[in-house]
C-alpha cells in the first residue's frame, strides 16, 4: 500500500514563496551555524505544510503572506515585534496578535525546522546539523504491518 497523499495547494505561486522568504529572513536571519530562512529553501515547503489546512485558511494565508511580504524589511520587523508584544494580551484583545503569530511564525517554523532542507554540504539538513538533532528509530519487517 502506498502512502496516503495530500496534494500541495496549487495556488501557492513562486511570488508567494518569495514573499514568505522575505518574512522568514526577519525571523531567522541566519548566523554562523544556522542558514537564513531563504538560504534553507524552506519557503518551497509551504504548500506541503498548508495542504492539511482548511481551504478558507489557505486563501487567508496566501493573502497575508502577499501583503506582509511586500512591506519593506524594517516594517516587517516592526510588525513581528508588535505581534510578539501582543501575544500575552488577554482575551479577544490579544486574539489578532496570536492568530497572526500562528499564521506567520507557524508556517515559517514548520517549514524551516522540519529537517526537510537538504542544504548541508553532505546533502543532509543544515538546520538539523546546526541543532545537532537527530531522531533514531529501528524499523524491521515485522513492524511493516
Amino acid at each position: 500500500m502506498s502512502r496516503p497523499s495530500s496534494p500541495p495547494i496549487a495556488a501557492f505561486s513562486r511570488r508567494h514563496e518569495q514573499a514568505l522568504a522575505r518574512i522568514g529572513d526577519v525571523l531567522i536571519p541566519g548566523d554562523d551555524t544556522l542558514p537564513s530562512y531563504s538560504e534553507s529553501g524552506a519557503a518551497a515547503l509551504a504548500p506541503r505544510a498548508l495542504a492539511g489546512a482548511r481551504p478558507v485558511d489557505q486563501v487567508m494565508m496566501m493573502r497575508l503572506i502577499t501583503v506582509v511580504g511586500a512591506l519593506p524589511r524594517p516594517l516587517i520587523a516592526l510588525m513581528l515585534l508588535l505581534i510578539r508584544a501582543g501575544l500575552r494580551l488577554p482575551g479577544l484583545v490579544g486574539a489578532p496578535a496570536r492568530l497572526l503569530d500562528l499564521a506567520l511564525k507557524g508556517v515559517i517554523m514548520n517549514t524551516y525546522y522540519c529537517g526537510l532542507d537538504r542544504t548541508a554540504p553532505d546533502g543532509s539538513s543544515a538546520v538539523f546539523q546546526a541543532l545537532d538533532f537527530r531522531l533514531q528509530m529501528h524499523v524491521d519487517d515485522e513492524d511493516a504491518r
Binding site: 496516503p4 495530500s6 515547503l45 506541503r48 505544510a49 498548508l50 495542504a51 492539511g52 489546512a53 482548511r54 485558511d57 488577554p90 482575551g91 479577544l92 490579544g94 486574539a95 496570536r98 492568530l99 500562528l102 507557524g106 514548520n110 517549514t111 525546522y113 522540519c114 529537517g115 526537510l116
Partner: peptide, 25 residues
C-alpha cells in the same frame, strides 16, 4: 518521519485549531 508532514497529514486543520480568542491551540 518529520513534524511538517505529521501535522499536515495526520491532524485536523493541518495541525492546530485555535479557540475563539486564540489563547489555546
Amino acid at each position: 518521519d518529520n513534524e511538517l508532514d505529521a501535522s499536515a497529514r495526520l491532524m485536523w486543520s493541518g495541525g492546530v485549531e485555535p479557540s475563539h480568542d486564540a489563547s489555546l491551540m
